[in-house]
Amino acid sequence: MRRIGRRVAHIVHGGDVILLSGPLGAGKTTFAQGFGSGLGITAPIVSPTFTIARQLNGRFHDGTAAKLIHVDAYRLGSTAYLPGEDVNSRLLDELESLGLDEELEDPSEDSVVLMEWGEQMAVALASTRLVIAIDRPEALSVGRGDNSAQTDDELSSDGVRTVSITGVGSGWVTRVRRLTIEGAEKTDV
């Protein structure tokens, strides 16, 4: 996941919004760590679940200054909605209270937004985005030594992941194609 994150960091530009989706333990934060490394960020990248967003400084692949805004939207919109309530308006209100609405609607030329768990918000706010969907096996079957199998639901870094990368909006087709071609030639991703 780190290697894929580093490679994706090499195709992003200022103003890009990247959405990470996948179940708990899929590797979203591990991807974010590789992505940060690809931007030359040396500060630790941890899941911003409780802070919701962190800003880190690095450099884009072309050497220009980069500002990574790493958002974990898991807790946003987590309270129950009232019947008939406009979900998008409520999410916008939450983002506005955090100062993130403008970065998603109109990212600055030196920033890239990397959002975990933000499917609803990114669709509502960012018409152009890169969607990285990470899937993993639901549970691993492990032998207990008595020839029976039990399901191990513990999260771990082990296991195969399937990563789908989809560009939404103009400009992504060429960059995603370049990522795929370079990946096929250089790695076993």
Rank of each mutant, 00 (worst) to 15 (best):
Q55R: 11
P48E: 10
F60A: 06
H61L: 12
D62G: 03
D152N: 08
G77E: 02
D152G: 11
T51N: 09
L92V: 12
E85N: 07
V46D: 06
P48G: 03
A122C: 09
D158P: 07
V160L: 15
V123G: 06
Q55S: 13
I52G: 06
H70M: 01
Q150R: 14
A65C: 12
E94R: 04
P44Q: 13
Y74E: 09
A65W: 05
D135G: 06
L68W: 10
R54S: 14
L91E: 04
S111T: 08
D110Q: 02
G38L: 10
G58A: 09
A65V: 13
D106C: 14
D158K: 14
V142Y: 14
V87K: 00
T49F: 11
V87I: 01
G159V: 02
F60D: 04
N57S: 15
A80S: 09
L125K: 05
G40Y: 10
I132F: 06
T151K: 07
A80I: 03
S148V: 10
D72F: 05
V123C: 05
V142D: 15
G38K: 07
R144D: 15
R75V: 04
G58H: 06
A65K: 06
G118V: 03
I41R: 01
S157C: 12
A73N: 04
W117N: 06
A53I: 03
A43E: 15
A65R: 08
R75Y: 04
F50L: 15
G84Y: 00
R90W: 01
A43S: 15
G118H: 00
E96V: 06
E85V: 04
S141W: 13
D72V: 01
F60N: 01
A73C: 01
Y74V: 08
D93C: 12
L98N: 03
V123K: 05
F60I: 10
A73Q: 00
D101S: 06
A149G: 13
G143K: 11
D101M: 02
E94S: 01
G38M: 07
G77C: 01
S89K: 08
G84P: 00
A66K: 00
F50Q: 14
A65L: 09
G99T: 08
I41G: 04
L76S: 00
V87T: 00
P44D: 15
G63F: 08
D93I: 07
S89N: 14
T42Q: 14
L98P: 04
E94Q: 03
G159W: 02
K67H: 11
T64G: 13
P48C: 07
V142H: 13
D153C: 11
S108I: 14
R59D: 15
L155T: 08
S47D: 08
